[in-house]
Design a protein around this nucleic acid. Sequence first.
DNA 1: GTACGTTACGGCGTACGTAAGAATA
DNA 2: TATTCTTACGTACGCCGTAACGTAC
Lengths: 297, 297
Amino acid sequence: MMITELKAFVLLAETGSVQAVAERLPLTQPAVTRQLQRLESLLDVSLLDRRAKPARLTSAGQAVLREARKVLAAVDELKRAASTNAQPQGTLRLGVVHALADAQLADGLEALGARYPGLGLQLASGWTNELLPRIDQGELDAAVVFMAGTAGGVPHAPGRLLATEEIVFLAARKTALGRHPTLLELNQIGWVLTPDGLCGSRSALRAAVESAGAPLHIAAEVHDVGLQLSLAERGLGVALLPRQRAMALRRPQLRRIAPPGLRLAMQVSLVQAPHLGALQQAVDWLAQRLAGQDRQP
Amino acid sequence: MMITELKAFVLLAETGSVQAVAERLPLTQPAVTRQLQRLESLLDVSLLDRRAKPARLTSAGQAVLREARKVLAAVDELKRAASTNAQPQGTLRLGVVHALADAQLADGLEALGARYPGLGLQLASGWTNELLPRIDQGELDAAVVFMAGTAGGVPHAPGRLLATEEIVFLAARKTALGRHPTLLELNQIGWVLTPDGLCGSRSALRAAVESAGAPLHIAAEVHDVGLQLSLAERGLGVALLPRQRAMALRRPQLRRIAPPGLRLAMQVSLVQAPHLGALQQAVDWLAQRLAGQDRQP
DNA sequence: GTACGTTACGGCGTACGTAAGAATA
DNA sequence: TATTCTTACGTACGCCGTAACGTAC
């Protein structure tokens, strides 16, 4: 109630004629008359001075006209804010898996802030299996996660696939290994893994090792990637790292190893809550950027 | 359409429960649910994340919530402006008869401006018979006018009676007149009248003189009251003036005369257009002040 | 007289309440 | 299981269009 009446009233003030209002709504004259009457009865004020035939606005009508324009402007503003094309406002709550929370991501987020100045950003890093429930809980709007597995069959991650990346094995050059070490040889050295490595790489690795006839030998479980690499450099284990990240390293004491029979890969994907509204385009923009750079150095 | 839905939505955001909204509107739960659905469909946005049972607002919902509050605030503002109790805004277009457009009125108008700071004032002076049509034409909101006639029967003026005032006769002391001159004696000197004296005093005077057996002898017709008095002082005619105004004069050369058989009077009244809305209280205030002072010096 | 706006009447759409169903906590 | 929200159905209210009327220019 009331907004349509206000529109009619403002139009009347602008055109000066009920007829003209009726044509532009479009409606019949009686309908417009009744809308105006309805508005007067809702507000309990005489808005029109009907002593003359092209009725004039009363002084109360003048005052109401000003306020009516404000109301309609506010309604337009609301519709604009509701439309998916609107400039995103508010805060985008973004989750990122630990392993990708690096400088490259920071660049992307900075660019996001530049692209959408009105948008606040709230970042949360966590493991894939932590982030996904938080999206379901409505705590996050979107998250960059990954799933890992054998190169042939990575468990398909939910959301949009941003990139597929190989996971490489890194071992110390000084370690006594042949040119093409087998998986079991590497397993004897032991693996340096991330603790809650529930993104799939650990299980794929375990499956491969066990099918080769040995139990998975975990040499170390640490969060910090720098520590993982240091351990590997010291020959205390074999570390796993996404290919791009490994190539960006300046760790000459490490060598990359490709054991026969096992190629691990991971899929980076962007998961989002449904119904993001205007935030959707920001998420889309981020997805495109992250996919576009394809995490190439 | 839409405002009731926005109310429901804002209430939902505040209470967090459809149930609570339903109780406070008051409505049944299904009705509230449908209002929310309707709003979503009107805006073509998902406002609620229904994955959880006490449904949460989506990010789009957050944005819409902000704008919805603005809309409702604007609507409240409109209702306030429409209410008769609202602070008068805009311009009060006031007409005043020439004869009352004096310093005393200026005081009243100044006080009006002080009482209603938001109110603009547009003053028009004119004759009663000019002002009344302008009210009908919607050019004026109110006017202070008067009607004159014999003391017994002043033609009743439209609008509110503010004051009844006697009209006195002023003649030069030096004029050869008895202690109680008759109407015909005064008529022989002649009358100093205002030209468009259509407010009644002239016709009452003419009727009285002619019934006494002589034609109305007009010595001068001038607008300016000062000139009228100067002419009277010089013995060139008899001037007519409201009693209060005459008593405020410092014209020792003039004497006040009360001819037997004719007492003229005038009624000051305030006429207004219908449907003034919030301006009404300003008019009421002015009427009360003008009547309250009763034009006593 | 003509144009413009207002009432009168019939039809349709829409919003509500009641009651049953789905889904979450 | 209990609470909360959503869907289904019938009813009533409200708004519009057509037509007749009243009124200012």
